[in-house]
Design a binder for these strands. Structure first.
Ligand SMILES: [Mn+2]
Ligand SMILES: [Mn+2]
Ligand SMILES: [Zn+2]
Ligand SMILES: [Zn+2]
Lengths: 142, 142
DNA sequence: GCAGATAATGATATAAATTATCAATATGGC
DNA sequence: GCCATATTGATAATTTATATCATTATCTGC
């Protein structure tokens, strides 16, 4: 069991939620896949490992994880929400407006800005998402 | 007709798309409302001004505006996509993970990072979105 | 370890949001 | 104004998301 999985599980129990087998499998699948899945995509993968887990439980678990700030829904081409992991505190993308290509990157200087905002609005920051949008190498040449 | 509306219209024609009356009304409504609308919300408002504009046209226009980088779909509580205006080059949010409150802010230091990424990946940046997620003043006290 | 209170589940039904089709129409270039 | 064709909108189909509720599993306290 990975550290990340342990940490996510702990966040659940720390907030008074039960660590059910369904939730365990869902978390494990989510971590293994590295996120970027839709609810139904995830439900399908989860059912490979645990066929008894219902689709509703996946939807509800995703909602719960969102509320706890562990994941975040974003658009990724299709009409369905895709969920990215937020437990590391940040997530960064370059996204092509034409073909939908997603490039991940790490560096970012949002901490200072966050600090200031946190005070101004008395807002407790748990994570951030930074996305640059534009045209990828390939799509610029079309 | 606002400068913003003119600029958006120009982007359409500059990219070889027709400036139809439907698109004009859609853009105008979008700008007037300041974005943050779902496709169906927008369709309803559009039909107040122009009853003949069909829902499909709104969906398709929103897709087109996304592809041109003028707007961007994000999640805002409900299952439907909400569209934010991106033509100013950036958009910044503080979002409460519990109640969904959205606070807008202006300052940000993403330009330098963007510059570096742009070169590294040969990616033409058109805009960026920065979101901080956490708990608002009110929800921290629950 | 067991019982009880209750959070959580999952089968089912319903609603909401998105996408596909295609004949009719409006648009911009000439 | 004419024409080629991009765009539209009515309709239908599909995909996503939400609501219900009886049943089950989890945790707490003993
Ligand atoms: Mn990612
Ligand atoms: Mn906004
Ligand atoms: Zn691309
Ligand atoms: Zn809140």
């Amino acid at each position: 069991m990975s550290d990340q999985l342990l940490s996510l599980s702990k966040t659940l129990t720390d907030n008074g939620h039960r660590l059910t087998t369904a939730r365990q499998v869902i978390l494990e699948t989510l971590v293994t896949c590295g996120g970027h899945l839709s609810a139904d995509d995830l439900a399908a993968k989860v059912r490979d490992a645990a066929p008894r887990v219902g689709r509703m439980t996946v939807y509800r678990t995703l909602d719960l994880l969102c509320e706890l700030g562990m994941i975040r829904p974003i658009y990724q081409g299709t009409g369905a929400a895709h969920y990215i992991l937020m437990d590391e505190g940040s997530h960064h993308h370059l996204i092509c407006n034409r073909c939908g290509l997603v490039i991940e990157f790490d560096e970012c200087m949002s901490s200072e800005v966050g600090q200031a905002l946190s005070q101004r609005f008395n807002f407790k920051i748990q994570s951030h998402l930074l996305e640059f949008h534009g045209l990828c190498d390939h799509c610029q040449k079309l």
